[in-house]
Simulated scan of single mutants.
Amino acid sequence: MSSMFDVVVGWGDAEPKPSGSGITLALQRLQVPPSGACFIGDSPSDIAAAREAGIISRGAAWGYTGPALSNHAPDILLSNLSQVRRTVADLMGRTGQYRTTPSD
C-alpha cells in the first residue's frame, strides 16, 4: 500500500500527536513548505499537531470528536466530506503542487 503514497510517516518515525513532528517530517520529505499544506483531522491532537507544525488545520466535525471539535479551534471546521474536496481544490489552486496520483 505504501506504493500509493509519495511519503509515509508512521510509528517510530516521529513523536506521536499532538506533536507536529510527523507532519513536519512528511513536509520535509515531500519538499512542501507549511504554506502549501493543510491537515484534516477529527481529534484535538490532530488540531494541536497541525498548529505545532505551522500549517492550516481543518477539523472534521463528522469524525471521532464530532462538532465539539470546534472547542479546540481548528482554522476551519468542516461539516461534511464535500468540504474536503473544496479544501483540496483551494490548496491546489494556491500551490500548484498537489498530486492526485502516485508518482512513478
Score class of each variant (00 low, 15 high):
Gln31Gly: 13
Gln31Lys: 15
Pro33Met: 11
Pro34Cys: 14
Pro34Val: 10
Pro34Ile: 09
Ser35Val: 10
Ser35Ala: 15
Cys38Thr: 10
Cys38Leu: 15
Phe39Pro: 00
Phe39Cys: 04
Ile40Ser: 02
Gly41Ile: 01
Ser43Glu: 08
Pro44Cys: 09
Pro44Gln: 13
Ser45Tyr: 10
Ser45Thr: 15
Ser45Arg: 15
Asp46Asn: 10
Asp46Thr: 08
Asp46Phe: 07
Ile47Pro: 00
Ile47His: 00
Ala49Pro: 07
Ala50Thr: 08
Ala50Phe: 01
Arg51Ile: 06
Arg51Thr: 13
Gly54Gln: 08
Ile55Gln: 06
Ile56Pro: 02
Ile56Glu: 08
Ser57Glu: 06
Ser57Cys: 09
Arg58Ser: 04
Arg58Cys: 12
Gly59Thr: 09
Gly59Ala: 08
Gly59Pro: 03
Ala60Tyr: 05
Ala60Asp: 10
Ala60Ile: 07
Ala60Val: 11
Ala61Phe: 10
Gly63Glu: 11
Gly63Val: 10
Gly63Arg: 12
Tyr64Ser: 14
Tyr64Val: 15
Thr65Ile: 12
Thr65Ala: 14
Thr65Trp: 07
Pro67Thr: 11
Ala68Pro: 07
Ala68Asn: 12
Ala68Trp: 09
Ala68Leu: 09
Leu69Ala: 04
Leu69Gly: 01
Ser70His: 09
Asn71Phe: 10
His72Trp: 06
His72Lys: 02
Ala73Ser: 13
Ala73Arg: 09
Asp75Val: 11
Asp75Gln: 07
Asp75Trp: 06
Asp75His: 09
Ile76His: 14
Ile76Ser: 10
Leu77Ala: 10
Leu77Gln: 08
Leu78His: 02
Leu78Ala: 08
Leu78Gly: 01
Leu81Tyr: 09
Leu81Pro: 04
Gln83His: 05
Val84Trp: 00
Val84Leu: 03
Val84Cys: 01
Val84Phe: 00
Arg85Glu: 05
Thr87Asp: 03
Thr87Phe: 00
Thr87Asn: 00
Val88Gly: 01
Ala89Gly: 00
Ala89Ile: 02
Ala89Glu: 01
Ala89Lys: 01
Asp90Lys: 01
Gly93Glu: 07
Gly93Arg: 07
Arg94Pro: 00
Arg94Val: 02
Thr95Val: 12
Gly96Ile: 04
Gly96Ser: 06
Gly96Ala: 07
Gly96Lys: 07
Gly96Met: 07
